[in-house]
Design a protein around this nucleic acid. Structure first.
Lengths: 235, 235
DNA sequence: ACAAAAGTGTTCTCGTTACACCCATGT
DNA sequence: ACATGGGTGTAACGAGAACACTTTTGT
């Protein structure tokens, strides 16, 4: 089978950076490592690429194993290839980042992995180069979200505009004018207003909206501009 | 040395998508494969990742071997992991794309590889999944160039604004208003006007400019807006 | 009645676009 | 003289930002 003679073969891992949003904070799902080395330390969920499996399939498999979820938004970020990144044995890692509605996450599934959600601003130490991966993923998320409507992937099917705004404000660590924000969002026509209101956040209550999935898919690559002065926020 | 037992190790390749601009067309540097399989067919320049070499080093090594150039703009695109992508043996490929000033390319160096520049619109058949890589690279280039000033990497140290415009028009396959274009470009203050003019393109002649490298680096991540209506051009 | 969040209306400003027109020069 | 591309001036337009103010309802 090995027909390129004289070349070195290397382990390939896939690691998933899994973002969630609990209504006020952006969080990351980490697992506590059961194996040596670095047993007890926190880590991204990952696994080795299997024969006859492509990268996306490996990422899906790994995400499902931890969260039970399928059909989740996930994109390849980049490969990490420092020869020393894994002290046990050279392993190239292809990192994926995933956005999930945190409420769909089933806790019992993760019992095997000792998984926990961490606020992105107060994360524990991570093994290997996982901290770097997370930093890059955070940047990438900001970058992408400033241009494309991916943050809807973090929200439940019904959400309010103030909730959406909190999410954007969390990602960009800043505050937007709520009046201009809601108008901008609605001007995309990606949202469908529901009859009910969410009264948990205020006395007046805010209308629920749903994503118009057809328009969402069709306009996914169109630029948007929810973020005032994006070039002022170093992305 | 191999201490993760029971896992499969895989060949890792790095392939470079090398863009150039000859003053009127955007081109891609391809090599004609000397080895079986697919001997005689065209291919991206690539090579296997070596022990103790990280991905960027491998990409630099490969680019230098073909073009003699160092210090070139190059960024990782993504990894391609289809188990069947190389019929000889499973090989994961990490693709990089590079932007070079075509005039710095030294032809003799490539004699070993039978390299040739191809217009991006009339490319020969490529081996494996290299066509897909090229398509993705073209998209990525458009995307990135619509937001960041990377296309300067394709130009010689001295260039005129009409040349720059031709480059942008080639990338986006459209025409811009030259009057508005030059104003937009100059408003970034990234360019320094030279005393001489380039008289080859017109009777009046167009002033040469140089990049202000300090400002270029400082503002690299700032958004720009040379492309009118970017959301109308499906990027 | 009041507080507090949601959301509408309106004005100002500035960047983009479209296009008339002038400039420089080789033939 | 005139054709050709390079470049400036300018007016109309529209999107974004700022903010006063109204709406709704729980306490």
């Amino acid at each position: 089978m090995n027909r390129y003679p004289g070349e070195t073969r290397t382990l390939i891992a896939v690691d998933c950076i899994i973002f969630g949003f609990d209504g006020s904070d952006i969080k990351l799902l980490l697992i506590q490592r059961g194996l040596k080395p670095e047993k007890g330390k926190w880590s991204l969920m990952g696994g080795f690429l299997q024969p006859n499996e492509d990268l996306q399939q490996a990422a899906d498999r790994i995400l499902k194993k931890l969260t039970g979820l399928e059909g989740v938004y996930m994109e390849q970020m980049r490969a990490f290839g420092d020869p020393q990144r894994d002290p046990v044995e050279r392993t190239l890692s292809v990192a994926y980042f995933a956005l999930i509605d945190i409420h769909r996450y089933e806790k019992q599934l993760s019992a095997d992995y000792h998984a926990e959600w961490f606020h992105v601003k107060s994360m524990p130490e991570l093994i290997f180069d996982h901290k770097e991966m997370v930093e890059i993923a955070k940047k990438q998320l900001r970058y992408k979200a400033s241009l494309h409507p991916i943050l809807f992937e973090l929200l439940p099917p019904r959400f309010t505009i103030p909730q959406l705004q909190m999410l954007y404000e969390g990602i960009y660590d800043t505050n937007f004018d709520n009046r201009n924000f809601s108008r901008k969002v609605l001007s995309t026509e990606l949202l469908v207003k529901q009859k009910e209101k969410d009264k948990s956040g205020s006395k007046k209550g805010a209308y629920f909206y749903r994503l118009d999935k057809r328009k969402y898919k069709a306009n996914f690559h169109a630029f948007l501009n929810f973020i005032p002065n994006p070039d002022k926020l170093l992305l």
